[in-house]
Amino acid sequence: MHTEPTIADPLHLAALYHAGYGVQWNSYREAATVLATQFNTNIGFARIREAVAVSDLPSEILAIFNEVGLVNSTARKLLKAANTEGASTLVARARKVDPSGKSRSTLTALVCGEVTFQRSTRFYKPLLLAKTYGDGLKEGKWVSAKEAAERLGIDRRTVTKAISIASLPSEVLALFPDMRADLGERLVHLTKIRGSEKMKALAIEASRTIPRLSHEELIGHFVGLARNKAKVKLRRSGGNLVLEYHLGPVNEVAESKISLMAVLLNAEISTRPK
């Protein structure tokens, strides 16, 4: 009997627990004690409980992992997502997924909603999508952004935008750990205008500023507007979110910088497919 795969796979462990229940043990703790002796390894009762819980998830979710299998970290992510969003939400996502050729991490991200692939949204997580793309390249799942988009069921432009955003200087990315696509596109556009080296220097300067700058202040910093000379207000008007900058009297240099900021905030960035 190959014990390691049995213990490593939560579904196999759950099946083993059910097979011995009422015969060799009557609780998770008892099962942990017996299995630890049989397999000569430490198996906590919480691990068995987790395995049983994930095995009880709807079949639509578990089915997409038939080829790649489950591991403990996958089980934990699935259970956390199911508890937070409800199993029915995960089922709806799983029904849209073609599992063929996808890695376990990609499938988990899709089912748990870590990558949102709606074509129309500007609020997916581009850095996570870029990582998914990079992992797929390394694993030989695809060889281009076009092929990745087809396999993932999303628009190629979404993939190429995510790649461009992930290619920003690491010093800039470090300031925006949970960056959204709309902000990332503005930073890509601004980097093209100001240059990578200037953006790096500005990002390093901003990282040393205490207290930490807000996103609005960081954009102003990258554009070249001095901090604390503007009064910023964020308000809602009907269904619109309005950002107001009250600068008072300004010179021509400041006015040109403000104009640049307006262009950035209104920009619709187009990225050439690779």
Rank of each mutant, 00 (worst) to 15 (best):
L152D: 05
P169D: 11
P177M: 02
A174Y: 06
I163V: 10
S164E: 15
L137V: 03
S164V: 05
K131F: 02
P177H: 14
W142M: 06
G134W: 03
V188I: 14
A162H: 01
R157I: 11
I154Q: 05
D135C: 04
E185R: 10
L183N: 10
E139F: 04
S164I: 00
W142H: 04
L152F: 15
E171R: 10
K141Q: 14
R180E: 14
A181G: 06
A145R: 06
I154V: 13
L137E: 03
D178A: 09
E185P: 09
R157A: 13
I165L: 12
P126M: 09
G140M: 07
A174L: 11
P177L: 07
F176R: 07
V159F: 08
A130C: 06
H189W: 15
R151Q: 09
I154P: 02
D182I: 12
L187H: 12
G136L: 09
A166S: 15
S167L: 06
L129I: 00
V143G: 09
D155C: 04
A162K: 04
K131E: 11
K138H: 01
D178G: 04
H189A: 14
A149Y: 00
L152R: 01
A181I: 03
K131M: 02
A145M: 08
A181T: 15
L152H: 04
V143R: 01
A130L: 04
K131H: 05
V159P: 07
E171I: 09
T160N: 11
S170H: 15
T132M: 13
G136I: 05
K161E: 13
K141C: 13
P177D: 04
K161T: 01
D182V: 06
W142G: 02
A181D: 14
R157H: 14
L183C: 12
P126V: 04
L137K: 01
E171M: 07
R156W: 03
L175I: 02
P126G: 06
L128C: 00
G153S: 03
R156T: 10
T132N: 01
V188Q: 07
P169C: 15
P169G: 10
S164N: 08
V172S: 08
R156L: 10
I165R: 03
L128P: 00
G134K: 11
R157N: 12
S144V: 01
L127T: 12
A145D: 14
R157G: 10
Y133G: 00
F176Q: 08
V159I: 15
L175P: 08
L183Y: 12
I163R: 11
G134L: 05
G153W: 12
V188K: 01
I154H: 00
Y133T: 02
D178Q: 12
K161M: 04
L137R: 02
T160P: 03
F176G: 09
E139C: 03
L129K: 00
A166M: 08
L168D: 14
S144W: 02
A145E: 12
V159N: 04
L137F: 07
T132H: 01
K141I: 15
D178T: 06
E171G: 06
V188L: 09
I154D: 00
D135L: 05
G134R: 15
A145N: 11
L183S: 13
E147L: 02
K131N: 09
A162S: 15
V188M: 07
